[in-house]
Nucleic acid binder design. Structure first.
Length: 380
RNA sequence: GGGAGUGUGCCCGAGUGGUUAAUGGGGACGGGCUGUAAACCCGUUGGCUAUGCCUACUAAGGUUCGAAUCCUUACGCUCCCA
């Protein structure tokens, strides 16, 4: 790939009636076509699914997590083994989250200062770690993903405005330091917009990132942390459709609800990741064109149909019945979680593929309307 | 044939005289899961004409103010001796 193409975001089509766009983001391990859903493989594995199968489902890029990989097997080990791609035997693009979300989800175990974040690692070995933005960049560069995220603070919801404001301040400060510390040329560093449900704080956060430097893409963090969907779109819609740089990919972090994806694409969001399809799949939930299905339910015990008649995934077209999948799930057989994870990932990948096609055809508005009128929309 | 032990809700199994419709598990049924502390967590699980009532700890009888708990008999199961 020509050097000037690396990390550029080519917009292939814009929808006339919405803010949706279809594009291509160029990375050192290949292009990714947007809008896109990215399956999550926290510990360098999409739980239960072979990389070749993940690829076969249509995944173009997967996530891994800096915090978890730094704990095990460790950044130095990964560097020694040639980086995360060869380690996990996935040779397409990879994105690592910085661990900012773990700062949020570990709550009381975490102590934040201007300088960085201190963790008590009780989920691994009880040790104490201290991360500065520089240390975090060093780790992510050793892990070697194609896209890396700045260290940030993700406030929950509800939250005092002053708390969110402080999170923006800290995240901005850390963005500067991550930007300065990041040197690996084959790796794209994304800044992250915070600001909770306050548009002015979101814009302040975004403005700071734009002034900080030329980030090749922007994460939108701090959503799906407890607020309802309408509350989220009150600020997400203007942020993404009116204020974010046009020629940079916009990545809505941690969102995997199908209806939210469809609506966010209409606002101009390009990338998503979420544990929802894999976690709920392992726990027995199937996404479908008619809504969520709890495959533990007794009503599926004698159901010889596929999970979703409308689905073309390898599970639905491969002869696996609802009755069989319910059997696997209720008996806690590992194949149940594997099949449901595959199906659910495919569901979101396919949803985004169809969205992309609609955008290119200039009819994304109708796509959204159809989705919102469908049986599934109400259930997601 | 003789002796010892044991019998609790769908199953296993606590409880050996008084807040016991009865601890725990499992199963069954249902719910949740959003930059993965998650192949996990939570709830329900005798019946009803339902702020109460009825039926319940193998069965029948007894002792007691009060019994799953003590006594008698029967039945089932387990082990030991013949």
């Amino acid at each position: 790939m020509p050097a000037d193409k690396l990390f550029s975001y080519d917009i292939v089509a814009t929808d006339p009636a919405t803010s949706a766009r279809a594009g291509v983001f160029h990375t050192a391990h290949g292009d990714i076509e947007t809008p896109i859903f990215m399956p999550v493989g926290t510990k360098a594995t999409v739980k239960g699914i072979l990389p070749s199968v993940v690829e076969g489902l249509g995944a173009q890029i997967v996530l891994a997590n800096t915090y978890h990989l730094a704990m095990r097997p460790g950044a130095e080990t990964l560097a020694e083994l040639g980086g995360v791609h060869s380690f996990m035997n996935w040779h397409r693009p990879i994105l690592t989250d910085s661990g900012g979300f773990q700062v949020f989800s570990h709550g009381d175990l975490v102590k934040l200062t201007d300088e960085g974040v201190a963790f008590r690692v009780d989920d691994y070995d009880g040790s104490h770690v201290f991360w500065t933005p520089e240390r975090n960049m060093d780790i992510q560069q050793k892990i070697g993903a194609d896209i890396v995220m700045q260290l940030d603070q993700c406030p929950g919801y509800p939250a005092e405005r002053s708390f969110v404001e402080r999170a923006v301040e800290l995240s901005s400060m850390w963005a500067d330091r991550c930007f300065a510390a990041h040197t690996r040329p084959d790796q794209a560093l994304f800044g992250i917009v915070q600001g909770g449900m306050h548009l002015d704080l979101r814009l302040r956060s975004l403005r700071h990132l734009e002034e900080c430097g030329d980030f090749p893409g922007y994460g939108i963090g701090g959503y799906s942390v407890g607020e309802d969907h309408e509350t989220m779109f009150e600020t997400l819609a203007p942020l993404a459709s009116e204020h974010m740089p046009v020629h940079k990919p916009r990545y809505l972090m941690g969102v995997g609800n199908p209806t939210t994806l469809v609506r966010a694409v209409a606002c101009g969001v390009d990338m998503f990741d979420c544990v929802l399809p894999t976690r709920t799949g392992r726990m027995g939930t199937a996404f479908s064109s008619t809504g969520r299905m709890n495959m533990r339910n007794a009503k599926y015990a004698h159901d010889a149909g596929p999970l979703d008649e409308a689905c073309t995934c390898p599970v639905c077209t491969g002869g696996f019945t609802r009755a069989y999948i319910r059997h696997l799930v209720t008996q806690k057989e590992m194949l149940g979680g594997v099949l449901l994870s595959m199906h659910n990932i495919y569901f979101l990948l396919d949803l985004m593929r169809r969205a992309r096609r609609a955008i290119i055809e200039g009819c994304y508005k109708a796509f959204v309307d159809d989705w919102m009128a469908s049986a599934a929309a109400a259930d997601y």
